[in-house]
Amino acid sequence: MQKRWENKFKMEKSYIITVKNLSAGYSSRESNNIVFEKANFSIAKGEFVGVLGPNGAGKTTLFKLLLGILKPISGEISILGEKCKSSNCQTNCKIGYVPQRHTFNSESMIEALEIVRLGINGRKMGFSLPATSRKEKEEALEMLKIVGAKELAHRPLSALSGGELQRIFLAQALVGNPDILFLDEPLASLDIRRENEFVKLIKKTAEQRNITVLLIAHNINPLLPVLNKVIYVANARVLVGDASEVFTSKFLTKLYNSPVEVLRDSYGRIAIIGAEEGGHHHDHDHDHAHE
């Protein structure tokens, strides 16, 4: 553990994720589609990054590229100092991932603790020895305590609400002591109060453990107090900046290539109002397809 922290300290100043000229796309029956082109950004250790943008802009695609599940059509990704080529690379063990939806049976009687344990031992071959098994169980319980879900440990997955499940998944992602967290819309199934609570929880845990967080969200507002950086994916482009830089009428108008207005209320909360956003977006995609 001590060594781990020392290593982390050495890497302090360097970038943990670097993306160069990254383009993503896929080929379908009608045409070749570009999701986004020439993305360039770097993320430093310990940063809390919000990934925002309209539906279908490629936020989840970006995560899958970073995880090595999808292959880019061009460009380079390096994570934790290693060039990432496929999802088998060792760096993936140091990434905690919470996908948008989980595939388990909604009637599953499997208890929450077992799902968290898979975060520790899911890749290992064979059965664990009784001593290791006990240690894993303790670690998983400890993590459930940290995310405030200790009382859910022995409840079946089918009996948990959306918000409770999010805590379980967060615990699963955190339990392997990751350096980076990828959270895909973790706030989607939460009410407003829980949204704020959950963001605070992620921020607190990430700070304590020096974890870099990338979080996809639809609504910027619950994230505003904690964000260091925003990755905005829209209109086949990926732009990066501070929240104050990105969420301005000028910046977003340029990005969308159509008039967008950013309003702020007295609390600093943001509302984005766009004219003909969908139409322009589509046209642009189409242009790229023929290039």
Binding site: L118, G122, R123
Partner: peptide, 22 residues
Amino acid sequence: ACFYRPLLFVSLDEDVAEAKGL
């Protein structure tokens, strides 16, 4: 018995297992 845990991981939580490099 050898593949018990990876198989369980993939069976219960396919996307996360894939992200972990399985």
